[in-house]
Design a binder for these strands. Structure first.
Length: 415
DNA sequence: TCTGGGGTCCTAGGACCC
DNA sequence: TCTGGGGTCCTAGGACCC
């Protein structure tokens, strides 16, 4: 029996920029960039000038003087992203969302309802265009890996179906960097060996690839070059870590800056942990110095934590250790906190309001539990009255960086 | 190309245990 | 006490993804 291509990969085109052009018709057809200091997303008109996500705003203006920078409508991004995913769920429950604007679908079980996979892909594209007003590219293939490559090749606003008997004909002429997992470093290492296409990769002995790239990467790339991809659609996933970071420009190292920034980051991370009813045992900090080189320090604690103040203290001690090891560094350009080794930690039912003093006086209550209880009460207040209602420290965002918090919640980098 | 934020996975050495 | 082999956890770094 013939194997069918039933995996779809759908990817909204230049998502943030497309939303801005949808909301403001005067921006349509023009080169625009979402962001400011850094380009978070560029419209296809801007990409034609070489502008792409992650690029500094200054450089982008050099490439495209008439480039128009627009602010972000973050609530709209989330709403439209959700709406598009909901359209996909009308075709199958087997939807794996991998970011705000991208998802895999397995439609093997719904062909009797909606027709062939290419017909479903066409209908999804039509509905996303009609109902959400956005262009979306779709790849259809037998494996996730190939479906994703097909959607990238289909961009912008296209559809590519790879029949199972044509897989290698489609795959082998393409450049290696289209493979998921091949970035600039791997691309360069392969190019040094004369390998630039997936077909050339496929005929390179896998032992040789493992020697150049390491066992895992080499073996994986060899398999993917022959379209061996056993991954299935995963409809649920739980995060393995929760983190936050803050770019600082170029600041002289000081305890004051470290404490204030870490307090803010710890608050962000711990609040999200508690919202997920998670706590973590391992705390990792990253310190980036001038010239962009960074070091990490981590510690695994005997118990999982989710309290803001404990996290801030642990992070501070780790950062201090990193700075002590690098006395030659005079500037820090970024600080980051991440918590991993997560465990489930259900929220206790607490009576509000909580008096911290009472908690501490209660027999058998540790200081850690008291702080945790304080954190929970702060969460509750914020739920009701908004984030700004309660703050641990008077750290304003303008002091920490130019990117508003809403940007931090949504990660997209295209181009 | 002078760089924002949130993640995943892999490697490698050392500690520690059996 | 010149001494093997395997497994697991911890830590630090790096490549990559969206």
């Amino acid at each position: 029996m013939a194997v069918e291509a039933t995996i779809l990969h759908a990817d909204l085109d230049a998502f943030y920029a497309s939303v801005e052009q949808l909301l403001d018709p005067s921006l349509r057809g023009k080169p625009i960039a979402v962001g400011g200091g850094v380009v978070l997303a560029a419209s296809y008109e801007a990409k034609a000038y070489g502008v792409h996500g992650g690029m500094g705003g200054h450089r982008a203006r050099e490439l495209c003087p008439q480039l128009q920078f627009v602010g972000g409508h973050f609530v709209e991004y989330q709403r439209l992203g959700d709406q598009v995913i909901d359209i996909m769920r009308d075709f199958t429950p087997l939807v794996e969302r991998i970011s705000i604007d991208e998802a895999f679908l397995d439609v093997a079980g719904s062909t009797h309802l909606f027709g062939s996979p290419p017909e479903m892909a066409t209908e999804i594209r039509r509905r996303v265009r009609d109902e959400a007003g956005l262009p979306v590219s779709v790849g259809v293939a037998r494996t996730k890996h190939l479906a994703k490559i097909a959607s990238q090749v289909a961009k912008p606003d296209g559809l590519i179906v790879v029949d199972p008997q044509d897989e290698l004909e489609f795959l082998h002429p393409l450049p290696v960097e289209l493979i998921w997992g091949v970035g600039p470093v791997t691309k360069t290492r392969l190019a040094e060996k004369g390998v630039t296409t997936i077909g050339e990769l496929a005929v390179t002995p896998s032992r040789s690839l493992e020697h150049i790239l390491g066992r895992a990467v080499g073996g994986k790339l060899f398999s993917l070059a022959w379209n061996q991809d056993p991954r299935s659609i995963q409809t649920t996933h739980r995060a393995a870590s929760v983190g936050a970071q803050s770019a600082l420009g170029r600041r002289p190292i000081s305890t004051e800056l470290s404490l204030r920034t870490l307090r803010h980051l710890a608050d962000r991370v711990a609040t999200r942990l508690r919202a997920k009813e998670r706590a973590g045992k391992t705390v990792t900090v990253r310190v980036r110095f001038a010239k962009m080189q960074s070091v990490t320090r981590s510690i695994t604690l005997p118990a999982a934590i989710s309290a803001t103040s404990i996290l801030a203290e642990v992070a501070h001690s780790l950062v201090t250790s990193a700075l002590t090891d690098h006395p030659e560094e005079k500037f820090v350009t970024l600080l980051a906190i991440s918590v991993s080794q997560l465990v489930y930690e259900p929220a206790l039912q607490l009576e509000l309001p909580i008096e911290l003093g009472d908690e501490q006086r209660r027999p058998g209550t540790t200081a850690g539990a008291a702080r945790w209880a304080l954190d929970r009460s702060v969460d509750a207040v914020r739920d009701r009255f908004g984030r700004k209602a309660v703050g641990y420290a008077s750290v304003s965002l303008s002091e920490l960086g130019s990117i508003p918090d809403e940007f931090r919640e949504l990660a997209e980098k295209d181009g």
